[in-house]
Nucleic acid binder design. Structure first.
Lengths: 253, 253
DNA sequence: AGAAGGACCAGTGGTCCGTA
DNA sequence: AGAAGGACCAGTGGTCCGTA
């Protein structure tokens, strides 16, 4: 009973490299160039260890080395543990050197969505609770499926950047070009993504949850705390300035 | 920041007895008789202690004695801690002696819904995450609001009984009458509530989550694990018997 | 310095089991 | 015995901060 969902994991297609699976689902702004680099990486399939842990680890899949740490085309640096840091790239641009571009970042969100769909299908088959969001369970599933480069802190960190990409791709692309031209780092670009999102929220009644939920690819992500707070603060500021300017109270809109 | 939602609690209408507030929202099958008994109980308002705890308890409202433990009309048993146990009653019937009837049980679900709505309104005002279900937060709020007779294990225990009441009140009422006539205890009635629910699910594609979510008063309750399991098992049985009978495969329906 | 992510923590969903 | 609910526990959402 407690292990049924874990058994399900082992019944699913764990033998494929997700990075390889999803070449077609490239970041919508990209030309798929980095995916070709990815696909060029060698892939070893995981080996079974024929070994069971005591609890909640039935049929654990040991991925060991293999394929995954080549996804940036650096030719097999087996020492490296962490992903290359992101740099601000234009849409379609491949990051050079030991860096990852923003099309790759957004592609990770699409991958998470596909892992969620797999988890949902398993849950439905088994008559279990079916997650509607990318939860810890989905991150765990992604890791078991071999996508070790996906982790919760990273995905949560850039959710609002992905939100802008989903909600106003033109604005997102323009922002990327500006920040690349200025030579800004990823942190600065990330910070800058908040402002256009708050503006979008303002045009739609400040309800950032409703905005996320109305978008099929965004609805599966929790609204980041800071974005929610910024929208809330901006709503108050907007209301206050309307009140000072003496216009009719538009709080209800 | 961490106490802002708790501050909000103290700004809300904590000074009223929820039992008194909600006379109009009586269990839909009842005639409101037990509410009159309830309203007949004397009510003392809570006293402020002028005392603040260190963390997460700002402006805690001490209800102490008062009103609440009279809600069954037993004349003020200050020793009693627990609610009277439920007995199987017909729709509209008042439980006699130190017992509670099923209209009262269902009324507790309506009360929880109103507490949820209050929590949602506070959350929206403060730009915080807004719960869609009756969560721990709602139970905590209910307790602070003085509804000490509401607790999570009890509400979760009888959710499927309330679900039947919501989804097929006639069937629910008929079941109550039968079990009362037979002199069955609450546990037996509770068990019997599963079967008609599974039948309803079968008529609607076995998706018990969809059935809950489609009903506005039920959507705020988590689907009980056992009900979900029963629906899942029944779906398999139904599919197997269809397969044996040689008819066309109707799994998709 | 800027950034990736292991690992922690407060509060959750779920319900057992000591209580009356 | 039947039943109410305090309290526990595994796993969650959230993100800090030791790491590279």
């Amino acid at each position: 009973d407690t292990t049924s969902s874990l058994d399900a994991f082992s019944q699913q297609g764990l033998s494929e490299e997700p990075v390889q699976q999803e070449k077609q689902a490239a970041g919508s702004g990209g030309r798929g160039t980095w995916e070709m680099v990815v696909a060029g990486g060698k892939k070893k399939q995981r080996r079974r260890m024929g070994q069971k842990k005591l609890v909640a680890e039935v049929d654990h899949e040991d991925e060991l080395q293999g394929g995954i740490d080549d996804e940036n085309g650096d030719g097999g640096d087996y020492e490296r543990q962490r992903e290359h840091p992101f740099i601000v790239t234009e849409p379609g641009e491949v990051a050079r050197g030991k860096k990852n571009g923003l099309d790759y970042l957004f592609h990770l969100y699409e991958q998470c969505r596909e892992f969620l769909i797999q988890v949902q299908n398993i849950a439905k088959d088994h008559g279990e609770k079916c997650p509607t969001k990318v939860t810890n369970q989905v991150f765990r599933y992604a890791k078991k499926a071999g996508a070790r480069y996906i982790n919760k802190p990273k995905m949560r960190h850039y959710v609002h950047c992905y939100a802008l990409h989903c909600l106003d791709e033109d604005a997102s692309n323009a922002l990327r070009r500006v920040f690349k031209e200025r030579g800004e780092n990823v942190g600065a670009w990330r910070q800058a993504c908040y402002k256009p999102l708050v503006a979008i929220a303002g045009r739609q009644g400040w309800d950032i949850d409703a905005i996320f939920n109305a978008h099929p690819r965004l609805a599966i992500w929790y609204v980041p705390t800071k974005l929610r707070q910024l929208c809330h603060a901006a709503r108050h500021s907007a209301a206050a300035s309307r009140s000072i300017s003496g216009g009719p109270d538009q709080m209800a809109f």
